[in-house]
Design a protein around this nucleic acid. Structure first.
Lengths: 146, 146
DNA sequence: GGCATATAGTTGTTTATACAACTATTCAAA
DNA sequence: TTTGAATAGTTGTATAAACAACTATATGCC
């Protein structure tokens, strides 16, 4: 097994992804401290809509790596918060297009600033080359399992 | 900002930790395929007990990076599955020590084999040096946020 | 000893995820 | 053109996480 570099005692932290969990928790705390009533999961959906407003729920599934029921419920909650609005597609009535409301658009600046802050804190003291290498490795892990 | 190596469009995948999520999903599928009625989260608690049987719930919190209510409920479910048993500490009656049952002990071999398989699949084609570097970086990210 | 405080664990509530089963619409082939 | 398969989305149910509020026990100080 040339590629298994993990001793038994080290398996756990890689599988649980404690680094990304720590990042997400830190960002959530920043949201809360800023009085933003928004979960990281909801933010991750808005994040895709800021890049491409009017995505279908199906597209949001692929973009955020979630299944259809998860997106249904996240969009439900984002609609309750009046941050997005479902609009049935005119060309295909099966499809819901999800659009940002004015309030949803407004969330971008503040939350992206907090997200960048969080990453700066997370990556303090790590050389740029190493960060890029790490990103490539994690991408390959993802591709290996796709 | 010397340490922010992330363009806006790349923030998302780092925060969501899609690599570790993919690993966890793959392992869960292997559990299901093997007919093991066990979640990854339950497995992560057993994993700590295999290393140190009779941990308190508090210790399990620290070892698995979870809060107290999460551990209470995971141990509840593991008890229902008859994989662990709570035993009140004799020296301090606030404390529950959590012990593996015979069945809980038996789960180790099969599940650890599936976990190692999963990691081998995830890390295919990634040089050992890079894996170690990646581990160090993720550890530093975690330490930065602790 | 008695009281304040800290510690260990539980319970309630909301949000999110996984999986299966379901409805509605579209599309394609007979 | 109709019928069967594929696609988009929803609903039900179980498990899990975060947070606040709670109970019970232990500790330390007067």
């Amino acid at each position: 097994m040339p590629n298994n570099q993990f001793k038994k005692g080290e398996l756990y932290s890689f599988i649980t992804g404690k680094a990304s969990i720590a990042i997400a928790r830190r960002l959530q705390k920043k949201f809360n401290a800023a009085g933003l009533n928004l979960t990281i999961e909801q933010w991750s959906v808005l994040y895709q809509l800021w890049k491409q407003d009017g995505s279908s729920q199906q597209e949001l599934c692929q973009q955020t790596f979630r299944d259809k029921p998860s997106i249904t419920r996240l969009v439900d909650n984002l609609e309750k918060l009046q941050l997005v609005k479902r609009v049935p597609s005119e060309s295909d009535r099966r499809i819901n297009l999800v659009f940002l409301t004015r309030q949803g658009v407004k969330m971008e600046d503040q939350t992206m600033q907090l997200a960048e802050q969080t990453l700066n804190e997370a990556l303090t003291g790590i050389p740029a080359d190493n960060i890029n290498l790490c990103k490539e490795i994690l991408q390959q892990v993802y591709d290996n399992l796709k």
